[in-house]
Design a protein around this nucleic acid. Structure first.
Lengths: 352, 352
DNA sequence: CTGAAAGCGCTTACAG
DNA sequence: CTGAAAGCGCTTACAG
């Protein structure tokens, strides 16, 4: 069983056009230095033969490296959520490095739009061929990817999506459905009055994630005609004192709240508050497989964690760029991550 | 920006071992004809250098073709569902042929376990390096893939899954959820008594798909505490006369049935029956984007079609084998297809 | 048991 | 504007 020889490559094109393969190569890559006449002839033959370049050979022969940029939040003291995607990025890089792909990671501060813009500008200056980013700041991200689009640099989103941009793909959760699942889980322990609290702890005001999660969350209650009330608060300062203050206030006002749903990974600060104020009667659900969260999960202060495989998001995001840029293979526009449910009982076996 | 030279290949291994690269190659591929001594030395160096073969180069240099087998049902007069996966297979083949991948498709008869076994035996004899199959017959498929497993031939399932086999991946619908969606859609037109009929038209008795879909279907009614009753019938003969006979009977016995859910693509034969017997008051839901089904969808006899991108299943199934065999890239164990909802209004834009 | 050499389909200086 | 030649990291006869 041998490869058949019905395949036509540059050699055959060169033969038919009566030129050298170097000239064929020039035409294929739209480089200058070919007379109009020969160029036209070669293009014709390429069409006639329906020539498909062998990307494997091209990559092997090329000395050019393909450089990719990654733009994600820096791991902060507040949350080490972004450790996981970074790990995935590093793993992907190790795999594709030998095919001439170089990855440079840029970090921005989740509390600073400015830092995002600065890093984005660096990427634009760096002449990268592909970008992986977390579009944490909507307006800033939009501007950045529009610049990418203008320079024909493919980009992929992870963790959250901004609809309507011409992205290569989005790899992350179906946020609405995730909120929906959250609501489902919350109802397990709901008793008579069905009064629940939705908490968003975040400095970022314009974040797509939160509204979509809350929407899904509310939709579940609505879909299932659950009685009761959904209170919600925004906690703009993420430090433990602010959280304590705001939660104390709302729980005082609504002393019949049965459950709390935290829309992001900062659920541990709520758990800490409940622990200190001895409110273990309140059930608690939140996001992400963080060390702090797992601790409270084990203690029984957090009932469920929902997780969207952040490491895999980083890994797949980069591999998607590799696939399209190096292998020329098609890539799904959207790749929704599973909505994993983690409990005290199964957390030990979870794969991020 | 050039590729760095920190990468060690066969050349460096050969240099360090004081042998030729041919000998290194022999060791890498576990071929005979190398003295134990040099073999040991080379293996040591490979480990030390953490040598990772360049699969691109390997594929390019190799004259061996990788041959893949596809085992799917033949397109029959009864249903042309399998046209779509086949189309996907053909498309994938065209893409990967130039990398030395050859695809051979084997067809079996959906009414004959024997034909499945015969084709499976041919594949086993054919020394293929990978297999894509629709495990339509559970026991037969199980035996076949166990033989594949024994010969270390990776295999992937499409359309339906058999849990617990050591498959490379499953690409197809989440059947339970699909039935769940079906039930949801069915309730749109449910009136007072909520009596519904579930119809399974199939000669295959042992099919994983049907029970899982029905389970999801029932789960929706249960989850939502819907009143009413779910009648179900199995129609073992797929010809139009048998369908007419069995449906007439059940609709006579239960004259207050409001809706019918058909668990596979044979919904057109139910639609045809309803049309002939003037029962347009009954709402109807079924599966798959077939020509016949679309006709009845347009006419309003079918309310919804659910579809799981069959062409993409064929395409992705083959590409998964390519990825693992040629590129050595990791593959998802499970890739659930979207549960697409097709109506009269949007069917024109549907992408299989 | 081992090695020299040709070649896979491209790309890339370099020379003219 | 064009071509000859070397090379990417492997594999494969072939010769010894």
């Amino acid at each position: 069983m041998e490869k058949d020889n019905t395949y036509f490559g540059v050699k055959e094109i060169a033969r038919r056009a009566n030129v050298s393969i170097a000239t064929v190569d020039r035409v294929i890559h739209n480089r200058t230095g070919v007379s109009e006449k020969t160029k036209k002839k070669i293009i014709e033959i390429i069409k006639e033969l329906d020539y498909q370049p062998n990307i494997l050979a091209s990559r092997l022969a090329s000395k050019k490296i393909i450089s990719l940029a990654v733009l994600i939040p820096r791991v902060s003291e507040e949350t080490d959520f972004w450790e996981a995607p970074l790990k995935g990025v590093v793993r992907a890089e190790a795999e594709i490095r030998k095919y001439g792909v170089l990855v440079k990671t840029f970090f921005f501060d989740l509390n600073s739009e400015k830092s995002f813009n600065e890093q984005a500008a660096l990427i634009l200056d760096g002449h990268f061929q592909g970008v992986l980013l977390s579009p944490s700041f909507i307006e800033e991200s939009r501007q950045f990817v529009q610049a990418c689009h203008k320079h024909k640099i493919p980009f992929t989103f992870i963790d959250s999506d901004i609809p309507g941009q011409d992205k290569l793909c989005y790899i992350g959760p179906h946020l609405f459905q995730s909120g929906y699942v959250g609501a489902r889980l919350l109802t397990y322990r709901l008793k008579e009055n069905h009064k629940v609290l939705v908490v968003n702890i975040s400095k970022e005001i314009d974040n797509y994630n939160y509204p979509q999660i809350e929407e899904g969350f509310r939709a579940y209650f609505k879909d299932h005609n659950l009685p009761g009330e959904i209170i919600r608060i925004d906690i703009k300062d993420t430090d433990s004192l602010s959280v304590t203050r705001d939660l104390t206030q709302v729980l005082h006002k609504h002393n019949d709240i049965e459950a709390i749903f935290v829309t992001n990974s900062r659920v541990f600060s709520v758990a800490s508050f409940l622990e200190k104020s001895n409110r273990t009667d309140i059930s608690l659900i939140g996001y992400d497989f963080l060390k702090e969260n797992i601790e409270f999960l084990k203690k029984g202060l957090i009932d469920f964690l929902i997780c969207h495989k952040p490491e895999e998001q980083g890994y797949r995001g980069l591999m998607a760029l590799y696939q399209t840029l190096v292998l020329g293979a098609p890539v799904d526009k959207v790749h929704f991550m599973p909505i994993d449910i983690i409990t005290k009982e199964n957390q030990a076996f979870y794969q991020n």
